[in-house]
Amino acid sequence: MSQGLSKLEELWVEDCSDLDEIIQKDGGITLDKITFPRLKTLALQNLAHLVNFYDANSSLECPFMEHLHVRDCPNFGAPKFHSSKQVHLNDECHYNLLKKRLKEPEDISNALE
Protein backbone atom coordinates (compact mmCIF):
# COMPACT_ATOMS: atom_id res chain seq x y z
CA MET A 1 0.00 0.00 0.00
CA SER A 2 2.83 2.42 0.76
CA GLN A 3 4.04 2.14 -2.85
CA GLY A 4 0.62 3.29 -4.07
CA LEU A 5 0.61 6.20 -1.65
CA SER A 6 3.99 7.32 -2.94
CA LYS A 7 2.36 7.97 -6.34
CA LEU A 8 -0.69 9.78 -4.94
CA GLU A 9 -1.10 13.31 -6.32
CA GLU A 10 -4.60 14.19 -5.09
CA LEU A 11 -6.46 13.08 -1.99
CA TRP A 12 -10.11 14.00 -1.44
CA VAL A 13 -11.87 12.76 1.71
CA GLU A 14 -15.52 13.69 2.12
CA ASP A 15 -18.60 12.76 4.18
CA CYS A 16 -17.01 10.32 6.63
CA SER A 17 -18.81 11.33 9.79
CA ASP A 18 -17.03 8.92 12.16
CA LEU A 19 -13.50 9.48 10.85
CA ASP A 20 -11.20 11.07 13.45
CA GLU A 21 -7.86 10.54 11.63
CA ILE A 22 -7.07 10.07 7.94
CA ILE A 23 -4.31 7.56 8.69
CA GLN A 24 -4.77 5.42 11.78
CA LYS A 25 -1.85 4.22 13.89
CA ASP A 26 -0.95 0.58 13.37
CA GLY A 27 -0.34 -1.52 16.46
CA GLY A 28 0.55 1.42 18.67
CA ILE A 29 3.53 2.38 16.51
CA THR A 30 3.72 6.11 15.90
CA LEU A 31 5.77 7.59 13.08
CA ASP A 32 7.55 10.93 13.46
CA LYS A 33 6.63 11.84 9.90
CA ILE A 34 4.56 10.60 6.99
CA THR A 35 5.71 11.38 3.46
CA PHE A 36 3.58 11.80 0.35
CA PRO A 37 6.30 12.59 -2.21
CA ARG A 38 3.92 13.55 -5.06
CA LEU A 39 0.83 14.87 -3.26
CA LYS A 40 -0.21 18.22 -4.75
CA THR A 41 -3.76 18.61 -3.46
CA LEU A 42 -5.42 17.60 -0.21
CA ALA A 43 -9.16 18.23 0.14
CA LEU A 44 -11.05 17.45 3.33
CA GLN A 45 -14.77 18.14 3.47
CA ASN A 46 -17.65 17.46 5.82
CA LEU A 47 -15.67 15.47 8.38
CA ALA A 48 -17.38 16.33 11.66
CA HIS A 49 -15.11 14.25 13.91
CA LEU A 50 -11.80 14.66 12.10
CA VAL A 51 -9.17 15.84 14.58
CA ASN A 52 -5.80 14.99 12.97
CA PHE A 53 -4.41 13.81 9.69
CA TYR A 54 -2.36 11.21 11.55
CA ASP A 55 -0.91 11.97 14.96
CA ALA A 56 -0.79 15.43 16.47
CA ASN A 57 2.94 15.07 17.13
CA SER A 58 3.84 13.84 13.63
CA SER A 59 4.72 15.95 10.62
CA LEU A 60 3.37 15.46 7.14
CA GLU A 61 6.00 15.76 4.40
CA CYS A 62 4.46 16.82 1.08
CA PRO A 63 7.24 18.47 -0.93
CA PHE A 64 4.96 19.28 -3.88
CA MET A 65 1.79 20.27 -1.98
CA GLU A 66 0.19 23.27 -3.65
CA HIS A 67 -3.43 23.24 -2.45
CA LEU A 68 -5.05 22.46 0.89
CA HIS A 69 -8.85 22.61 1.09
CA VAL A 70 -10.55 22.20 4.47
CA ARG A 71 -14.33 22.65 4.66
CA ASP A 72 -16.75 21.74 7.43
CA CYS A 73 -14.14 20.04 9.59
CA PRO A 74 -14.75 21.91 12.87
CA ASN A 75 -12.36 19.86 15.02
CA PHE A 76 -9.52 19.54 12.54
CA GLY A 77 -6.16 20.96 13.51
CA ALA A 78 -4.13 21.60 10.36
CA PRO A 79 -1.18 19.20 10.34
CA LYS A 80 2.41 20.29 10.60
CA PHE A 81 3.17 19.64 6.97
CA HIS A 82 6.19 20.67 5.00
CA SER A 83 6.19 21.66 1.33
CA SER A 84 8.78 23.29 -0.89
CA LYS A 85 5.91 25.04 -2.72
CA GLN A 86 3.66 27.85 -1.61
CA VAL A 87 0.50 26.19 -0.30
CA HIS A 88 -2.80 27.85 -1.21
CA LEU A 89 -5.36 27.37 1.54
CA ASN A 90 -9.02 27.08 0.47
CA ASP A 91 -8.49 28.54 -3.02
CA GLU A 92 -12.12 28.73 -4.17
CA CYS A 93 -11.33 28.73 -7.91
CA HIS A 94 -9.08 25.65 -7.66
CA TYR A 95 -11.62 23.89 -5.41
CA ASN A 96 -14.44 24.41 -7.91
CA LEU A 97 -12.31 23.10 -10.80
CA LEU A 98 -11.26 20.08 -8.76
CA LYS A 99 -14.81 19.29 -7.67
CA LYS A 100 -16.14 19.62 -11.21
CA ARG A 101 -13.45 17.33 -12.56
CA LEU A 102 -14.04 14.72 -9.88
CA LYS A 103 -17.79 14.65 -10.54
CA GLU A 104 -17.53 14.15 -14.30
CA PRO A 105 -17.73 10.36 -15.02
CA GLU A 106 -15.43 10.39 -18.05
CA ASP A 107 -12.72 12.19 -16.11
CA ILE A 108 -13.00 9.75 -13.24
CA SER A 109 -12.68 6.74 -15.55
CA ASN A 110 -9.68 8.36 -17.26
CA ALA A 111 -8.05 9.03 -13.89
CA LEU A 112 -8.41 5.36 -12.94
CA GLU A 113 -6.65 4.10 -16.08
Rank of each mutant, 00 (worst) to 15 (best):
L112F: 07
H94Y: 04
A111S: 12
H94Q: 10
K100F: 03
V87Y: 02
V87L: 09
S84W: 07
K103Q: 08
D107H: 14
N96L: 13
N110A: 10
N110M: 10
C93V: 13
H88L: 07
D107Y: 15
N90A: 01
D91F: 10
L97R: 13
S109A: 12
N96I: 03
L89Q: 05
I108D: 04
D107A: 04
R101Y: 15
Y95C: 00
K99C: 02
K103I: 14
H88E: 14
A111L: 14
H88W: 06
Y95W: 10
S109F: 09
L98K: 05
N96D: 06
N90Y: 01
H88K: 10
H94C: 01
E104W: 12
L98I: 10
P105S: 05
P105L: 04
L97I: 14
H94A: 02
L112A: 05
N96T: 03
L102Y: 06
V87D: 00
K100P: 02
L102V: 09
S84G: 10
K85T: 03
L89V: 14
C93K: 15
L97Q: 12
P105E: 09
S83I: 14
L97C: 08
C93A: 08
D91T: 09
N96F: 12
L112K: 12
K103N: 12
L89Y: 05
Y95K: 05
S83W: 12
K100A: 06
L112Q: 11
N90K: 02
K85W: 08
L98W: 12
S109C: 06
L98R: 15
P105I: 10
Y95N: 03
D91P: 03
K100H: 08
E106I: 15
L97E: 13
N90G: 01
S109V: 15
V87Q: 01
E92Y: 12
N90W: 00
S109R: 13
K85Y: 07
Y95A: 00
K100D: 05
R101W: 14
D91G: 04
H94G: 00
E106P: 00
K99G: 02
K103Y: 07
H94D: 04
E92Q: 12
Y95S: 01
E92S: 05
E92C: 01
L89H: 12
E106M: 14
N90I: 00
K99T: 11
I108L: 09
K85V: 03
S83Q: 06
S109L: 14
L98S: 08
C93D: 08
S109Q: 11
L89E: 07
K103E: 07
Y95M: 04
K85N: 10
I108A: 03
I108F: 05
K99V: 11
H88S: 05
